[in-house]
């Protein structure tokens, strides 16, 4: 069922390797022996219906959830077999943008960005921290919101600040959980552009979880569809969607015909 990955440079280094990953919650089998690779420098879009385990997958990658079976390697390290300190070191290389941004609502935008930086690089001077904060806020185009509280920001601005907070640690891999969910079409396009800018400027490899095919088409070098707990189809956008497959067609029809 899995389509050949003709357009992917197979000699490229794999930054994430998922082999035979299974995860259940009680009697509900969410992921069933899933296989997936993320190559250095690519944006991989993961599509799938609600409740198919897309968010569970990326939470396992950062060690927020543990797999029932299978292997998850990030930069060659087994996520579920390393020590807590090694996991913390690994997490510095993996940025995670949450669906609801998960900004610390008792802190200003500046404090939100400073929080991970000062706790992971304690030798930085105040000036260096300020510079780093300004740089990432500028990168997401929100320099003017520095002293605002998260509650004063719009949905799109919160997403951008959430992305900026992950970028401040200079991650090699970015995981975006529904980056365009709940946003208007224009803001969605802005966020899609931002994801591409991040890939280009920070040389990141990314997994983007989404339902939004416009997002998938604009940001994805490769698309993988999670169906029935497995990645049934992988390939470029056209390879995956120029199909008569009854399980895949509804995604395309809903997004582009409606």
């Amino acid at each position: 069922m899995v389509q050949p990955l003709e357009n992917i440079n197979k000699s490229a280094e794999k930054v994430i390797e998922i082999k035979g990953l299974s995860k259940s919650f009680g009697s509900i089998h969410v992921l069933r022996k899933v296989h997936l690779d993320l190559y250095r420098g690519e944006n991989l879009v993961v599509l799938g219906r609600s409740g198919t385990g897309k968010s569970v997958l990326i939470k396992i990658i950062v060690g927020l959830l543990m797999p029932d079976s299978g292997e998850v390697l990030v930069n060659g390290q087994y996520v579920d077999k390393i020590s807590y300190q090694e996991l913390l070191d690994l997490r510095l290389k993996v940025g995670f943008s949450f669906q609801n941004s998960a900004l610390y609502d008792s802190m200003t935008v500046r404090e939100n960005l400073e929080f991970p930086l000062v706790r992971n690089q304690r030798n930085l001077s105040k000036k260096e921290v300020d510079l780093a904060v300004e740089e990432v806020l500028d990168a997401v185009g929100l320099l003017q919101t520095m002293n605002q509280m998260p509650s004063e920001l719009s949905g799109g601005q919160r997403k951008r600040v959430g992305i900026a907070r992950t970028l401040i640690l200079r991650p090699e891999i970015m995981l975006y959980d529904e980056p365009t969910a709940g946003l208007d079409p224009i803001t969605c396009l802005d966020i899609n552009s931002l994801i591409n800018e991040v890939q280009e400027r920070y040389r990141t490899s990314s997994i983007v979880i989404t339902h939004d095919l416009t997002c998938a088409k604009q940001v994805g070098n490769r698309v993988a569809i999670l169906l029935n707990g497995k990645f049934e189809r992988q390939g470029t956008f056209d390879e995956v969607f120029l199909t008569k497959d009854e399980e895949v067609k509804p995604f395309y029809d809903y997004n582009f015909i409606q």
Partner: peptide, 21 residues
């Protein structure tokens, strides 16, 4: 509410120690 809105998870994934903080 920090747990529900994933703020504690956000601290975890940015290699900070939410328990300590």
């Amino acid at each position: 509410s920090m747990r529900v809105t994933e703020q504690i998870d956000a601290m975890e994934v940015s290699a900070c120690n939410p328990f300590k903080f």
